[in-house]
Amino acid sequence: MNQNVTCPVCDAVFEVAENVELNELLTCPDCGSELEVVNLKPLEVAEAPQEEEDWGE
């Protein structure tokens, strides 16, 4: 049975596979943020650090 998790960045609620592992990286389907599983029971995610690529002029 899949579990639901809430994205800390945009508050979207999305489904995650039941066998998700600690420190696994997920992508929020709404805002695309990279999230890291920081706790399994209860399931918790936090924003994964992303290096800032340059973009634009």
Binding site: P8, D11, Q50
Partner: peptide, 24 residues
């Protein structure tokens, strides 16, 4: 997050509106 919630509330089910805000 509050802004995301407001736009999702009004446009979450709209077929022709997409919220486009990405980090990379």
């Amino acid at each position: 997050k509050d802004i995301w919630k407001i736009y999702r509330k009004y446009y979450g089910n709209e077929p022709f509106i997409r919220i486009v805000k990405e980090r990379d």
